[in-house]
Design a protein around this nucleic acid. Sequence first.
DNA 1: TTGTAGGCGTTATCAG
DNA 2: CTGATAACGCCTACAA
Lengths: 340, 340
Amino acid sequence: MADADTPPTLDDVAHYAGVSTATVSRFINKSGKVSKRTQVRVEEAINTLGYTPNFAARFMAAKRTFTIGAIIPTMENAIFARGLQAFQEALNDHGYTLLVSSSAYKPQAEEEQIRTLVARGADGLLLIGHDRKPEIYDYLDRQQVPVLVAWSYDETARAPSVGFDNKTAMQALAERVLSMGHRHIGMISGISEGNDRARRRIEGVRAALQGFGLDPATLSPLEVPYNISDGDLALETLMSRPTPPSVVLCGNDVLAAGALRGAKRLGLDVPRDVSITGFDDIELAQVVSPALTTVHVPHREMGRRAAEELIAMVQEKRAGISFKLETTLVDRGSVARRDG
Amino acid sequence: MADADTPPTLDDVAHYAGVSTATVSRFINKSGKVSKRTQVRVEEAINTLGYTPNFAARFMAAKRTFTIGAIIPTMENAIFARGLQAFQEALNDHGYTLLVSSSAYKPQAEEEQIRTLVARGADGLLLIGHDRKPEIYDYLDRQQVPVLVAWSYDETARAPSVGFDNKTAMQALAERVLSMGHRHIGMISGISEGNDRARRRIEGVRAALQGFGLDPATLSPLEVPYNISDGDLALETLMSRPTPPSVVLCGNDVLAAGALRGAKRLGLDVPRDVSITGFDDIELAQVVSPALTTVHVPHREMGRRAAEELIAMVQEKRAGISFKLETTLVDRGSVARRDG
DNA sequence: TTGTAGGCGTTATCAG
DNA sequence: CTGATAACGCCTACAA
């Protein structure tokens, strides 16, 4: 009886098969150079012993893990899920494994997770948005771990990114609303501190106002966490202002769904009494009623491209190349025309 | 100039501080036994060098990673998100890090991910549901990695579990519907193969039918993937049967939201023309209209308890103890009373 | 309190 | 094609 209390190692397999560890290693890594006969012997040994290579040891010796890490702000809603799924699929196609962590929108947590993932040997990292302390990028440089940012395109940022321009996307939506006659815009945004996506979306609305000859300073966005109930309450706050807005632009579809719920709660009809818009175009946008007019983001394409770019950075040891995706407006009926 | 092209190691820190690696190691692991003076020296060395311990090396030497792995069927919707968030928070409170992977409901992918996580040194694993090949449990035993199953309570299963009884939960809902006069039940289920939750929910409905003196065999659930559009199409299929159901029980809230959309598309009023129910009580259930009558699952409590139990299993090297959570019915108006 | 040294499981170099 | 053997970075008795 062999010891059943400790996982089998390369050594065990080698002994069992009557060859050296080097040979077993070669077989496992398919580096050719192994005769047909020994191949079957080794394979059998592996199977009967139930051997699995130890990543840690492998990593120490080879410095590669074929693992990519991703840290997303939240798993509590579907915003990042779809793109991440595509990211993972593309990664798998190339033989890489994805490890995900969620920071709950806390910069501190994100920083720890970055260190964890790096220390665990992630070959590359996917992060959401550009906003974070420069020291983090310094650290990543020192550790020589390639980073790619998604969900936000910004050429001027320190890290390469695959995403869309949050500002112009939101600006286009705001312009559409303005062109439909709305003049009093309310906005429910996510917390903008440490979140360039949220911030740029606000900027987009301001730019649109300016373009229509209105004062950008009149926009005072309500910043709340990205939960349905927050959107619900925020809508109530906005509507109880002295001059309530005729349209409420929300930072994302989740907030918009909440706003919709809030409107219903207050007995307001959407879009007759107040128009509401979202951002992201997740499935949620299509099941609420009225369905949300929103900004469609090509989530899956973003995920796939990000995976390909990051893998290229890792394998070719080169700097990342940013890629800008286009968003489109989707009109679904949660916005009504307004006269004057 | 030191070499700037490779991350600093324990050795570097030791040299810089003028002590041995053992001392630095002791300092890092806070094993006491380090004089105040050397402490500051080491700390400074670590900071100026920007040192981060290498997990792989650490794992090889110490066999512990303080990391827990979790594999969920999907990230595409919020079903698992909430519980997982709580799981992660509880883990963090105890000094553990969570690594998540999604299998996209593919047993093959799940198996690979289990191996990956184990090989990476996960101290313990959280899996969803009991259904999987026995070899996987054998493998886990051999590797001595504790596993806990969530989202499904089953004393008779091989692995310990923290969850609820999917059958009785669904049975209670079906009984409620029956007691409201419905006699023709339609069901949209997730794919039940390899998914004990889905299977047990179907069983629950059958048990309820039996209890009301109806033939359980008359229930022919439509099995579809867990997407909104699948629920939408499935509802159409059900309603175009010779004798359409008066109520459609859905395997989860996502399918129910889809069914709701399908009903709207067909010009059917819910619940007047057809009643619809969900399962899970995720936020989605409250934003669709009508809001969904569904089964409330204590997601956060489940996540927290799972974390505590799994950590106990890891630290005390003991078998897991199953824990059963209670679910409750939430009546929100998507079911109407039916005469006869 | 501190240092020395062996070992953890792989990979990879270099001889056979 | 195959086999020794030296790293890889850290932890932890065992000594001092």
